[in-house]
Amino acid sequence: MHAFANPTRFLSLARPLTGWLGWAGAVLALVGIIAGLTLTPRDYLQGETVRIMYIHVPAAWLGMAGWGGIAAASVAELVWRHPLAAIAARATAVPGAVFAAICLASGSIWGRPTWGTWWEWDGRLTSMLVLFFLYIAYIALADASADRGGGARVAAIFGLVGAINLPIIHFSVLWWRTLHQGQSIGFTGSTIAPSILWPLPLTTIGFTLLFTAIILMRMRMLLANAKLEARQRRMGGAA
């Protein structure tokens, strides 16, 4: 019963939140995208391609934040055996992988006109590609362990170990000489002119809210599936 008490409370919160977060995120992201495509000036060097930043940066952030969430949920699962933790981690894997892929694709499309190449094996690009492959491996592992049951801890340990890639992605442009430029936005300020920068928080917050809504949808799906399976097993046992 303890296992069901938490999901019930969670669902009463998640049901209304899914729609609100989803719509708010979609509207914010759309406003940011339209502003980024029409209202901001072009960059003095990159020209119009600077606009790719408004989707590339949120995608990179969510690709990394997604794995951060998986790692946090993995700790909660390993230490406190929280019943929702495994569900949350599994729900985050596919959206995280999609945004990591969007980050790689949009970055590649920016790199061609800017650097003159679609892809180079520099520290930032390689570590981001590794993150994408980690997602794929995690999805396969979580699926396999869910089928057999009980093996979910393997996925949690993998989620925790894979988190070591996050600081590597972040600091790659500081530690190593990379083709990718250094960090533009820090705690102390930004080297992006305000007239170019302002839609970026809109798309970043917008996509983040949407990402949260997607995770809630997937958690609700996994909970409903678990409920379904439990009931079927009980009915199968009775028959």
Binding site: I33, T49, V98, I109, M217
Partner: peptide, 29 residues
């Protein structure tokens, strides 16, 4: 051309992911 391509990838990817998750959730619930 590059800007539109990047936005198409991002928007279609996000839209597809959202709809797929929504449909899967509805069906399961």
């Amino acid at each position: 051309l590059f800007v539109v391509a990047a936005y198409a990838v991002a928007c279609l990817g996000t839209l597809g992911l959202t709809l797929a998750s929504l449909v899967a959730m509805r069906r399961a619930e």
